[in-house]
């Protein structure tokens, strides 16, 4: 499916099109249940991470990470593989618990919620896993229908309409009867995206949405993320190490390394004011502050020692 043929039809987006009855059926529980912890009302920050500490298997992964993600924008969080980007998304989603620090989503401390409240919060967060994480025993249609069936009691006809609209918005209405094993990597990711927006979330977290795709599919995904964000008024958190694609759509970038934010700014700002490390990362240079060599004893002594 090339980008120009499979043009994204904005008409397919649900927020504009859903009939009032459908909107009522899947209406979100009032958010006001959660008293905002932040004192200032109407803040523009959707996700705020304060002094996050987390380690895995005794190895510290985050050491005092703090960042803010503004509403309605696309924020890219970038860093080399293994810095804990996936871990960060799981922390935001409440699947992992930090050792210290807070994560506020829409003013709510994710890790201070009971299970029921956490689940209610998660309905308003979409997450796109690196692998897509489609349910392998369900067809494309049923995968997208899955969150709707689990959370809302909808009549079958309305459900069908909703699912087809979501599929249309990612351009895969025609693939509804395929099984996940019959999908290419890019298609699987688009189905997962349709599923992630099925419950009309306020935000979507993308875990490495660009890895392992051919250039055309990559272009499709890049423009999809941008268009969905704008059309649905979403907040997007994009985790990636693909500098080019991420900076082409992100409004704001965070570079993280060694458990902390190294640099932050708009793509243009980073172009000019980035630190030495960020410069190496953004330009993809083989040597710099991140040495080419893994830490090792002196080469010559190492070689001669064996004698």
């Amino acid at each position: 499916m090339t980008p120009h043929r499979g043009r994204l039809r904005l008409a397919g987006f649900v927020r504009r099109e859903t009939p009032p009855s459908a909107r009522a059926g899947i209406a979100h529980r009032p958010v006001q249940r959660f008293p905002p912890i932040d004192t200032q009302p109407h803040n523009d920050t959707l996700v705020e991470i304060r002094d996050l500490h987390f380690s895995r298997g005794g190895r510290p992964i985050f050491k005092g990470l703090s960042l803010k993600i503004p509403r309605g924008s696309i924020t890219a969080i970038m860093g080399p593989s293994g810095t804990g980007k996936t871990t960060l998304l799981k922390l935001i989603g409440g699947q992992l618990k930090p050792e210290r620090g807070q994560i506020l989503v829409d003013g709510v401390d994710v890790h201070r919620q009971g299970l029921a409240d956490l689940y209610r919060l998660r309905r308003r967060m979409g997450m796109l896993f690196q692998s897509g994480a489609l349910l392998t025993d369900l067809s494309v249609f049923e995968n997208v229908a899955f969150p709707l069936r689990e959370h809302c009691k909808l009549p079958e006809r309305l459900l069908r309409t909703l699912v087809l609209m979501k599929l249309e918005s990612v351009g895969l209405r025609g693939a509804r009867d395929l099984m996940p094993s019959e999908l290419s990597g890019g298609m699987a990711r688009r189905v997962a995206l349709a599923r992630a927006i099925a419950l009309d979330p306020m935000m979507i977290m993308y875990d490495e949405p660009f890895t392992g795709l051919d250039p055309i599919t990559m272009g499709v995904i890049v423009s999809l993320i941008k268009r969905l964000n704008d059309a649905l008024g979403l907040t997007s958190i994009l985790v990636s190490h693909d500098v080019q694609e991420a900076s082409s759509i992100a409004d704001y970038l965070y570079l993280i390394s060694d458990g902390q934010v190294v640099d932050a700014g708009t793509p243009d700002e980073l172009e000019t004011i980035a630190s030495e490390w960020s410069h190496q990362f953004l330009k993809g240079l083989p040597d710099g502050p991140v040495p080419f060599h893994y830490p090792a004893p002196d080469y010559l002594t190492d070689l001669t020692e064996g004698r």
Binding site: Q95, R123, F129, L135, H151
Partner: peptide, 16 residues
């Protein structure tokens, strides 16, 4: 396999 392919994790994130 569902765990390995993150299907279980994905369900959790869909509040299931």
């Amino acid at each position: 396999l569902m765990k390995t392919t993150e299907q279980l994790s994905g369900m959790e994130m869909m509040a299931v």
